[in-house]
Design a protein around this nucleic acid. Structure first.
Lengths: 175, 175
DNA sequence: AGCAATTAATCAGGGCACTGAGTATTTCAG
DNA sequence: CTGAAATACTCAGTGCCCTGATTAATTGCT
């Protein structure tokens, strides 16, 4: 009893949406290059010579994942990674010829895929779809790295949750 | 040049939305139990004794992931897994006392989290948000497992993509 | 009854995503 | 100028997510 309707849970919907996208991407765009990898290529087409951290910031990939993705793209010969002579901590990234070519080809396919993916929505609904998701994602992002880092996120959100695997014995239900 | 605006790419938005959700979940709901794990608990509260495959179908987890998730939940003592006496291929799943308690506790926290997560949208917008995502996800799901499995997905979608890591030399850009 | 096809679950392998720890380099304070 | 703090990146560990292959059990066909 007391089960919940997951179709009103944004997290569950977000996961399902991403799964659906993943599948369609594999069929219609590429089985080799993933969507996050394409995002990295796309950023470096616009701004060659960025360092890893900045690219990660642009596309929403954390430092660790970024590191892996860069390794994979480098292994495929799609980008070069050279140490910044000005700052030996950074690696500067730049697409190879193949990287640029691959980006161009995938851009076309991605556009086709997006059309199929969004086909169930009218043009107006598509714009609404973008806007609503963007607003929710941006707001949550805000919670994490506030413009004025005065209080911690946990302050605003009511503190970290207590451990939730019930210890046998005590631990009366909270609500 | 020719870089694309990712903020109109549903896949990119879906990924960012899920990341945002992941973060908030960790802060506001649980660091131990993940959102997919909660989905499994929730399904088993409603329908105890289901087998793995069916639960996976209900919550949108494939067989492999399901297997892992069940192992983790079992390790935590939140569910029991017994062979179906009627059909020795199946494992029947059932929450333990702790499993039920944990589900109840997380239900409350999840509701709070969803409120915070969706706070940037008005009530009407929230419903629209659900509906639009659901329609897109359902439609994509349809493409994968059509009601009448007469044609393959690749027929309807224009065929699998050619390999896309450019071989040096040939391979003129498609468009 | 007996064997092929189907089905449930697992395993191997690749990729995304996060945290926390560790290394190298740069910056900054005294 | 020197040592502490900050920064860029990597690594280890956990979990989700998918595909293709494998194993065990059942079903169905002849």
């Amino acid at each position: 009893m007391a089960a919940v309707d997951l179709s009103t849970h944004p997290g569950h919907l977000a996961r399902r949406l991403q799964q659906a996208h993943y599948l369609l991407w594999n069929v219609m765009v590429s089985e080799e290059i993933t969507s996050p990898q394409f995002a990295v290529l796309n950023t470096l087409v616009a701004e060659p010579g960025l360092d890893q951290r900045t690219v990660g910031e642009r596309v929403g990939l954390d430092r660790s994942t970024m590191s892996e993705v860069i390794t994979r793209l480098g292994r495929r010969g799609l980008l070069d990674k050279v140490r910044d002579p000005q700052d030996g901590r950074r690696f500067l990234l730049r697409l190879t010829e193949d990287g640029v070519r691959t980006h161009r080809r995938l851009t076309v396919r991605t556009a086709r895929m997006n059309q199929v993916f969004l086909a169930p929505l009218s043009e107006d609904e598509q714009n609404l779809f973008f806007e609503l998701i963007r607003r929710v994602a941006d707001a949550a992002e805000e919670l994490r790295s506030p413009a004025e880092p005065l209080r911690q996120a946990s302050d605003r959100l009511g503190g970290a949750p207590a451990p939730d695997v019930a210890r046998h014995g005590g631990d009366p239900v909270t609500s």
